[in-house]
Simulated scan of single mutants.
Amino acid sequence: MTANVNPYLNFRGSAREALTFYGSVFGGEPRISSFKDFGMPVGEGEEDLVMHGQVDLDGEPLLMGSDVPSHMGYTAGENTFSVSLSGDDEGTLTGWWTALSAGADVQQPLEKAPWGDSFGMLKDRFGVSWLVNISGGAAS
């Protein structure tokens, strides 16, 4: 069972370029999925933006990132990162989600996502953004 903590970087239209750059810096190959790959609704012309990308190092995620579509708020330098909690240890990750949810602004409840995992997003009571992804989609 695993549970990982990784920085999650947000961009406005430059995630693909940034992840490719970071991959070259750290010696990892970026894995990139677009909003179109998962049929996620975004603004016109934004289908090919990065919905999720990550750079792995030695088979483990090093950092992750995505483009923020135009329907979501974004100010460069302010909301440009989140902390990602991921893995297949459902009990640990669900426990972390529950604890972080106390007094939080839950933007996406932890529930089954189109890619088959369970996923949730929240901003904790201190203003830190968290993403939780549980492989296999067993959480609720």
Results as ranks from 00 to 15, higher is better:
residue 87 G to Q: 05
residue 126 F to S: 03
residue 48 D to M: 03
residue 59 G to R: 08
residue 69 P to F: 09
residue 134 I to T: 03
residue 101 S to A: 15
residue 108 Q to I: 10
residue 42 V to C: 04
residue 84 S to P: 01
residue 102 A to H: 13
residue 27 G to K: 07
residue 100 L to Q: 00
residue 9 L to H: 04
residue 8 Y to Q: 05
residue 35 F to P: 01
residue 139 A to I: 00
residue 81 F to P: 01
residue 92 T to P: 01
residue 39 G to M: 02
residue 64 M to H: 09
residue 28 G to R: 02
residue 9 L to A: 06
residue 72 M to V: 14
residue 87 G to T: 06
residue 85 L to S: 05
residue 23 G to A: 08
residue 50 V to Y: 09
residue 36 K to E: 09
residue 72 M to P: 08
residue 62 L to Y: 10
residue 93 L to G: 04
residue 44 E to N: 15
residue 115 W to E: 03
residue 98 T to F: 01
residue 115 W to M: 11
residue 59 G to M: 06
residue 24 S to E: 13
residue 63 L to G: 09
residue 120 G to I: 05
residue 139 A to Y: 11
residue 75 T to L: 03
residue 72 M to S: 13
residue 129 S to E: 04
residue 89 D to K: 00
residue 94 T to L: 06
residue 20 T to E: 13
residue 81 F to V: 11
residue 140 S to K: 15
residue 125 R to C: 09
residue 69 P to W: 11
residue 50 V to W: 09
residue 38 F to M: 13
residue 30 P to G: 11
residue 123 K to A: 10
residue 110 L to W: 04
residue 45 G to I: 06
residue 42 V to H: 00
residue 34 S to N: 03
residue 130 W to N: 05
residue 140 S to Q: 15
residue 121 M to E: 11
residue 97 W to T: 01
residue 44 E to S: 13
residue 78 E to M: 02
residue 134 I to G: 00
residue 60 E to L: 11
residue 72 M to G: 02
residue 85 L to E: 00
residue 107 Q to A: 06
residue 15 A to K: 14
residue 92 T to D: 11
residue 72 M to C: 12
residue 109 P to Q: 14
residue 44 E to L: 06
residue 32 I to W: 05
residue 127 G to S: 07
residue 14 S to Y: 00
residue 64 M to T: 15
residue 98 T to I: 01
residue 68 V to A: 01
residue 62 L to P: 15
residue 18 A to H: 07
residue 76 A to N: 04
residue 105 D to W: 03
residue 72 M to I: 13
residue 80 T to Y: 14
residue 50 V to R: 06
residue 62 L to S: 07
residue 105 D to L: 01
residue 86 S to A: 14
residue 110 L to A: 11
residue 19 L to Y: 04
residue 55 V to K: 09
residue 110 L to T: 08
residue 30 P to K: 01
residue 113 A to D: 05
residue 114 P to R: 07
residue 6 N to P: 06
residue 48 D to L: 02
residue 18 A to M: 12
residue 84 S to W: 11
residue 139 A to F: 11
residue 94 T to E: 12
residue 85 L to D: 05
residue 29 E to D: 12
residue 75 T to V: 15
residue 40 M to R: 08
residue 69 P to Q: 05
residue 11 F to T: 10
residue 4 N to W: 12
residue 77 G to D: 00
residue 116 G to S: 07
residue 125 R to G: 05
residue 99 A to S: 14
residue 105 D to K: 13
residue 44 E to H: 11
residue 128 V to T: 15
residue 118 S to C: 01
residue 23 G to S: 10
residue 38 F to G: 02
residue 73 G to C: 00
residue 52 H to G: 03
residue 103 G to F: 06
residue 19 L to T: 00
residue 49 L to W: 15
residue 36 K to W: 01
residue 43 G to M: 00
residue 17 E to T: 07
residue 31 R to V: 12
residue 133 N to D: 14
residue 50 V to D: 00
residue 60 E to N: 08
residue 55 V to Q: 13
residue 69 P to E: 12
residue 22 Y to I: 01
residue 58 D to C: 10
residue 108 Q to C: 05
residue 7 P to K: 07
residue 80 T to W: 08
residue 39 G to I: 04
residue 98 T to L: 09
